[in-house]
């Protein structure tokens, strides 16, 4: 237990502490301009006063962590869930996080299905590899934000609104890392092992199920984590041009127009917490699968 604390928790905590310290220090010069602007012309401001003012402004250029924590706690209300007529949900961070989470998960599942099936087709069919792979790459160089409004328009013409277009935009971003990682993984089994399977006269399916798929796992899981993150980016970005009222991206746009920086950071923090929960749960799954398949985990003790 003590060893685990020293090996895993202590380094992370040290770096987080360093970041928080730098953050507080950086807030002073970043926000000092406003303090001087509000003060009378040739006033001398003592350092303690300057520091306390820059850490407590209403619309600072860089809000300090405790201001953001206070804002998150103020906005993260659950009470609308059991209130009559669900009043006040529009101000709740929990509600907007849920809206973004639902389209993230939806888009990620779509992207996972599309990505894995595409990479299977690419690995097993030469025509698919030759014709589709360059276009998969090209698809990612088309900035999604540009076609997002058009996806929404085209899908609305087909009678689909709300979750569906946002999910498609998330899928568009999340399938790419999965295709790249899974294709690389499926091709990463050592030739000697494939020859071994051949000498055992394994069927194509057995080679896939017992050799290629397990050896793809260490590539698939990092790819899935990137894909999940990309799906969240997609969900946030999709809310920018769609005129959406709900969701973290929509709130971010509203607050940026009013230059209310503290709520902006509160929204970013809840998006970060959401991403963190998703990635940590995938990390646990990855460790379990890797251990079961006999791969080394990144954090394991190495000799």
């Amino acid at each position: 237990m003590v060893q685990w604390l020293a090996r895993s928790v202590l380094p992370v905590m040290t770096i987080i502490a360093a970041i928080v310290l730098i953050w507080y220090a950086a807030a002073v010069p970043m926000n000092a301009g406003r303090t001087y602007m509000m003060a009378p012309d040739d006033a001398e401001i003592a350092l303690p006063d300057l520091v306390s003012d820059t850490w407590a402004q209403k619309k600072p250029r860089l809000p300090v962590p405790h201001q953001i924590v206070v804002e998150v706690r103020k906005q993260a209300t659950f009470s609308w869930i059991w209130k009559e007529k669900r009043r006040g949900y529009k101000r709740s961070l929990i509600y907007h996080t849920w809206v973004t989470l639902s389209s993230t998960i939806f888009g990620f599942v779509l992207g996972l299905v599309l990505g894995v099936s595409l990479s299977l087709a690419i690995v097993y069919s030469r025509v698919m590899d030759l014709s589709v792979m360059p276009w998969v790459i090209t698809s990612q160089t088309i900035p999604i934000i540009a076609i997002a409004p058009m996806i929404i328009v085209i899908m609305a013409a087909g009678g689909m609104t709300g979750l569906m277009p946002k999910g498609v935009i998330s899928m568009y971003l999340s399938y790419f890392p999965i295709v790249v990682g899974m294709t690389k993984g499926l091709r990463s089994s050592e030739p000697i092992l494939e020859d071994q399977m051949k000498t055992w006269s394994a069927t194509a399916f057995q080679t896939f199920w017992l050799l290629r798929l397990p050896s793809a796992m260490p590539f698939l899981f990092p790819a899935m984590k990137i894909g999940l993150a990309a799906a969240l980016v997609g969900a946030v970005v999709a809310e920018l041009p769609s005129g959406a009222r709900a969701g973290l991206g929509a709130r971010l746009l509203v607050f940026s127009y009013r230059s209310e920086t503290i709520p902006m950071w509160a929204n970013l923090v809840s998006a970060a917490l959401l991403a963190g929960i998703l990635v940590v749960s995938f990390g646990l799954l990855e460790r379990a699968v890797n251990r079961r398949l006999g791969f080394r985990n990144a954090g394991d003790v190495t000799s």
């Binding site: 380094p11 984590k225 971010l252 902006m264 970013l268 963190g276 990635v279 990390g283």
Partner: peptide, 22 residues
């Protein structure tokens, strides 16, 4: 390395694009 890898993984998963208006 032990400090940066988990943190880097975490931040890589964040929708950093949200920082654009800032």
């Amino acid at each position: 390395r032990r400090g940066l890898l988990p943190l880097g993984n975490f931040v890589a998963a964040l929708p950093v694009v949200g920082l654009a208006p800032i």
